[in-house]
Computed example of a mutant assay.
Amino acid sequence: MQQTHSCLAVAMMVVALSGAVSAAEPVAESPDRQPVNLAGRGWQLVGYQSANGLVEIAANAGVTPFRFEDGQVSGRAGCNQFSGSYTLDGDRLVIGASMASTMMACPEPLMQQEQAVIAALTAAKTVRQSGERLELLDDTGVTLLVWRALPASPLVDNVWMLEAYRHDRQGLVAPMENTQISLDFHDQGTLNGSDGCNRYVSGYVLESGRLRIGPLATTRMACRGPDAVAEQATAYANALSLVSGYRIEGPRLTLIDAKGEVVARFQARSD
């Protein structure tokens, strides 16, 4: 009987020691888990959660690339430019509920899209990155937002000055005398310039040689000179909305439509 008790005690000690060793061993992370790196690049929003499931964002839906820099997230989700604070701890992401935003009025579908995206941002609890894909999830693991990382753009590092653009009624025409129209692309998927009357900003998506430019948001200054200056600005904005691709040949940038026809032609500014 004493021998039986001794064997039982030894066995219990072995089990206890085995449990102690197991508890002390670190748990290996999943090899599929990628460290989250939000800063230093632009993220193009491609999908958001709605009552009907994950919705794919259409081209020219008023969305500019999102940026996560120095604790601030910014972008445009359909209509207005916004910015807010965020904190990232591992894969835990908290975006502040109070956001600064412009107050533009837009078509109802874009306003609804924007409201859904902002709601998803503030409801996010974790972030998951897999290659060039970034997802924000709620506390139950449901994907709320999906982004795609933007590649470095060959369009940057130049200010492009307009030489000619497509006018609805006149074909390809030169800008009016004494007006300068410019286009400046940035790495984070945003662009800005002058339309000869007002400053403008927008976003662009560059993928596999294809280029899309979003709607222009402009200042509201009254144009100096004849009414034709304002008409030119409108025609230039319409031309940019047709862009589907581009060519760079030396110092010249040519924007083309889906048929390969010229929409606008620019020359790099020599500083």
Results as ranks from 00 to 15, higher is better:
100 A>Q: 13
102 T>Q: 07
103 M>Y: 10
103 M>T: 13
104 M>R: 10
105 A>M: 14
106 C>H: 11
108 E>C: 09
109 P>I: 08
113 Q>T: 03
113 Q>P: 09
113 Q>R: 07
114 E>N: 13
115 Q>S: 14
117 V>C: 04
118 I>R: 15
118 I>P: 02
119 A>Q: 14
119 A>C: 00
119 A>G: 12
120 A>M: 05
120 A>I: 03
126 T>D: 15
128 R>E: 15
129 Q>V: 04
130 S>F: 09
130 S>K: 14
132 E>A: 15
132 E>P: 10
133 R>F: 07
137 L>T: 11
138 D>M: 06
139 D>V: 11
140 T>E: 12
140 T>K: 12
140 T>F: 02
140 T>P: 08
141 G>Q: 08
142 V>M: 12
143 T>G: 08
143 T>I: 00
143 T>F: 09
146 V>I: 12
146 V>Q: 14
147 W>T: 05
147 W>A: 10
147 W>G: 08
148 R>W: 06
148 R>H: 11
150 L>A: 07
150 L>N: 10
151 P>N: 11
151 P>Q: 13
153 S>F: 06
153 S>W: 04
154 P>R: 10
156 V>M: 06
158 N>V: 01
158 N>R: 11
158 N>Y: 07
160 W>R: 03
162 L>C: 04
162 L>R: 03
162 L>Y: 00
163 E>I: 04
164 A>D: 01
165 Y>T: 01
166 R>E: 14
171 G>Y: 10
171 G>V: 04
172 L>E: 05
172 L>S: 04
173 V>N: 02
174 A>H: 01
174 A>P: 07
175 P>A: 05
177 E>F: 07
180 Q>P: 07
181 I>R: 06
181 I>W: 01
181 I>K: 01
182 S>C: 14
183 L>F: 07
187 D>P: 02
188 Q>C: 05
189 G>Y: 00
190 T>W: 08
190 T>L: 05
191 L>S: 04
191 L>R: 02
192 N>A: 15
192 N>G: 04
193 G>I: 00
195 D>P: 02
195 D>N: 07
195 D>Y: 00
196 G>Q: 05
196 G>D: 08
197 C>D: 04
197 C>G: 11
198 N>Q: 09
199 R>W: 11
199 R>Y: 11
199 R>N: 14
201 V>W: 03
201 V>E: 02
203 G>D: 03
204 Y>A: 06
205 V>Y: 11
205 V>M: 09
206 L>C: 09
207 E>N: 15
209 G>I: 12
211 L>K: 13
213 I>P: 05
214 G>I: 01
214 G>N: 12
214 G>T: 05
215 P>T: 07
216 L>R: 01
217 A>H: 07
217 A>K: 03
